[in-house]
Design a protein around this nucleic acid. Structure first.
Length: 761
DNA sequence: ATAGGGTTAG
């Protein structure tokens, strides 16, 4: 055991010493600081045993051993022993002692020692600056540089490399410019270390040409300087040049290392050249750098970006499995690519490998949870991150807010939003979009307004999401506000503007915005813009104009475009055009059940029962099945599922009674059933009866019977809510004075006192 | 003699 003889840090003292043992030749060269420790222990532990005195050089050698082994305990112990014996250290030995404190991370001790030293030289300053810089104490490090200069110590290349690195770390790389002149005048720019540090500073500033100039001026270029210039090109988008320099380097006989490979692979990634990447990968394998985590990560990036999953996994398998970064990266990629199940699976594997997730991992897994509406896993991760304090990370808390919002628990999101210590634009966006998806345009809009009131800098994305969040007319107001700022409307902004016009049926304005996109804003028209316009024209019954616009499109209309037209044809009973649109959709997606159903609805509205039967038959032939409607509701930790006409629920008698009562009450309140939702050739009475058996109404009835009064009733449906059920829910919410929330395939419907948040659109 | 340079995911 190491014994501490006195307090860890001691004042610097200066008595005389004698040397008895040449410690350096006895054990220092074997490189064991334990020898130093033993010696120190021996001397102090047994007062009666002979205690040799050492000279400054011997202490220096012992301390140097501690540095080599990173042994702070031995080093500190030795310092104590030196002081106890009244030993004296010369400048050389004190510098090593100082460096011992710096290298073992005891920067405050180093600082104290530095101040107590009777003399200092450039080396003392550089050592301490390095330590302060490593431990992020930037202002102190910078002060030290000024002091060095003021006290007239030599400005050697070591000073400049250290100060340049410090500036880059502080984010003040531009200050490198000021130093460059001084460096040049002193002739230090030919030094490989100073040159590399300069190249790095210029890389950060984006000054590629000057970096190249510095590189050319380095007299003895080594692998680090070569890597520096490759990295400079790769980081600044000059990917071809990066590869070129890399080849040049090889012809000069330099062997790339893991740093070099990382940079050159980034260049391949930037070029999008899988082939170049693969040949570098082969070189990586030949040089045995495949286990390097940095190299591995860029390779993962390269292969996952080009959808090359097999190779990506091969690389992943070769990387050290203890590395949380590679796991998180893979999980993030899957989550971004909407392969959420794989993301979650990988997360579970990672947990099994006993690797604890960090903020990156949590943010990515939560993203996957949000997409999959995995509330349960989301809550588990919430517990974990609260326990380890990751909830303070803005990315994590944003992702968590999104999970709750997407799962319909917006109050939880709001709670996190309020607690969130440093909000960014994504934080606000998440809430705004969250309320918008819930159908609560007013809350979304007021949140957006308070964001402006707090003078939180709104970005294009914020304006765009606020605009898409609220109901039509307000959206156009938001757009006006945006035009008064420096934020430039983008593609997404106009998707919001146009869909607002579409929702409100504002044809003239919609058309004006549509035209101004190319004329005034130089925004390329994309499929979504056309889809909105076709929806707008179709909604107002201008079916021919919609067709004309489709013909004018500069690219092949997507399925969405034809679906929009088909929808318009269904509501305006245009059978021929509807048939054509459905055909177009089915050419691209022959097994799309929704289109078959819409087409059959179209025929049913026109009472063309033969055609209805034909569509049904062709669905059967192709094996296309309409996804059965399913609604579910949670109560006391149990989930209750209902299908249309379902009689299997144990509470069925009560549910039927409730439905009967609702039927009567809504009828008395003036509710007129819309039988168009029943596409069967039966009498109207029968149609009305069938409507009351829809899955969402069964779930509603159950909710009214079993959930606590005044609580919100939450129903989830896998398809879109039917028109008649939507109307009925509005009446019911008023009659029973309950909040009803229906999450259907598309959006939330929040029924309150006879009104739905979706504005019936 | 002792001090110095280049790479991780939203």
């Amino acid at each position: 055991m190491i014994r501490f003889f006195c307090q860890r840090t001691l004042p610097y003292t200066n008595p005389a010493v004698h040397c008895r043992i040449n410690y350096r030749t006895s054990c220092s060269q074997r490189g064991f600081s334990s020898q130093a420790v033993q010696l120190a222990q021996q001397c102090s532990g047994h007062a009666e045993s002979p205690t040799p005195d050492f000279d400054s050089h011997t202490y220096a050698a012992m301390l140097q051993d501690c540095v080599r082994n990173g042994d702070s305990a031995a080093g500190t112990g030795l310092h104590c022993e030196i002081v106890k014996r009244g030993g004296c250290l010369d400048l050389f030995a004190s510098n090593i002692l100082l460096n011992m404190y710096v290298k073992t991370g005891l920067v405050s001790d180093a600082n104290k020692l530095f101040e107590e030293m009777p003399q200092r030289n450039t080396i003392s300053f550089v050592s301490l600056m390095q330590g302060l810089s490593e431990s992020q104490r930037f202002p102190e490090a910078l002060d030290l540089f000024l002091r060095l200069h003021r006290e007239g110590h030599e400005l050697n290349p070591f000073v400049f490399t250290t100060i340049l690195k410090l500036l880059v770390r502080m984010g003040w790389a531009e200050m490198g410019w000021n130093l460059h002149g001084c460096i040049y005048k002193l002739g230090h720019d030919s030094d490989a270390f100073v040159g590399s540090a300069l190249i790095d500073a210029y890389t950060v500033c984006g000054c590629v040409d000057i970096a190249r100039h510095v590189f050319e001026g380095i007299v003895f270029k080594d692998i680090v300087s070569w890597t520096g210039i490759v990295a400079c090109y790769a980081e600044n988008g000059c990917f071809e040049e990066a590869l070129e320099v890399f080849c040049q380097m090889r012809t000069m006989g330099f062997k790339p290392n893991n740093f070099t490979f990382t940079s050159v692979l980034k260049a391949c990634l930037g070029l999008g050249s899988l082939n170049a990447g693969k040949s570098i990968h082969a070189y990586v394998l030949k040089s045995h750098y495949e286990e390097d985590q940095f190299v591995g990560l860029v390779l993962l990036d390269l292969y996952t970006k080009s959808e090359n999953t097999t190779d990506a996994f091969r690389v992943f398998e070769e990387m050290p499995k203890s590395d949380v970064v590679s796991w998180s990266f893979m999980i993030a990629r899957y989550a971004q690519k909407d392969r959420c199940e794989e993301a979650l699976d990988l997360f579970l594997q990672m947990r099994r490998a006993l690797i604890s997730p960090n903020q990156f991992t949590c943010a990515s897994v939560l993203q996957a949870c949000a997409t999959m509406k995995q509330l349960v896993l989301g809550k588990q991760i919430h517990c974990h991150i609260t326990k380890v304090g990751l909830d303070l990370n803005v990315f994590v808390s944003n992702a968590l807010m999104d999970v709750y919002a997407k799962c319909g628990k917006i109050e939880n999101s709001m709670e996190l939003f309020i607690q969130s210590p440093d909000k960014n634009d994504v934080t606000w966006n998440t809430m705004i979009v969250g309320y918008a998806q819930l159908g609560d345009g007013n809350k979304a809009l007021s949140l957006f307004l308070s964001m402006l009131r707090f003078q939180f800098p709104a970005t294009e994305v914020t304006y765009s999401s606020a605009l898409r969040a609220c109901a039509s007319v307000e959206a156009l107001n938001v757009f006006d506000m945006m035009r008064k700022t420096n934020c430039k409307p983008n593609k997404l902004t106009f998707v919001g503007v146009l869909s607002a016009c579409s929702n409100a049926g504002l044809l003239e304005q919609g058309q004006a915005y549509f035209n101004s996109m190319t004329q005034d804003y130089e925004i390329e028209l994309c499929m979504e813009h056309y889809t909105c316009m076709i929806g707008l024209l179709g909604r107002l019954g201008h079916l021919n104009k919609a067709v004309k616009l489709i013909e004018e499109m500069p690219f092949k209309p997507s399925v969405m475009v034809w679906r929009a037209l088909l929808g318009a044809c269904v509501s305006h009973n245009n059978v021929e055009l509807g048939k054509l649109s459905a055909q177009r959709v089915l050419e691209m997606e022959p097994h799309d059940d929704a289109t078959h159903v819409l087409l059959s609805n179209l025929y049913a509205n026109a009472k063309r029962w033969n055609n209805v039967a034909f569509v049904r038959k062709s669905m059967k032939k192709k094996g296309v099945k309409k996804e059965p409607g399913l609604s579910w509701i949670e109560n006391q930790g149990m989930v209750h599922y209902f299908t249309v006409g379902d009689t299997s629920h144990p509470d069925m008698k009560l549910i039927s009674g409730m439905l009967e009562w609702l039927n009567m009450k809504t009828w008395r309140a003036g509710f007129v059933p819309d039988c168009s939702a029943v596409l069967r050739q039966v009498e109207n009475d029968e149609k009305e009866r069938l409507l009351w058996l829809h899955s969402e109404r069964l779930a509603l009835a159950f909710g009214l019977i079993r959930t606590p009064s005044r609580s919100q009733i939450r129903i989830i449906k896998n398809l879109r809510i039917c028109v008649d059920c939507h109307a009925a829910m509005k009446f019911v919410s008023k009659i029973v004075k309950r909040d009803i929330l229906v999450r259907d395939m598309n959006r939330f419907h929040h029924f309150q006192d006879g009104i739905c948040s979706c504005g019936d659109c």
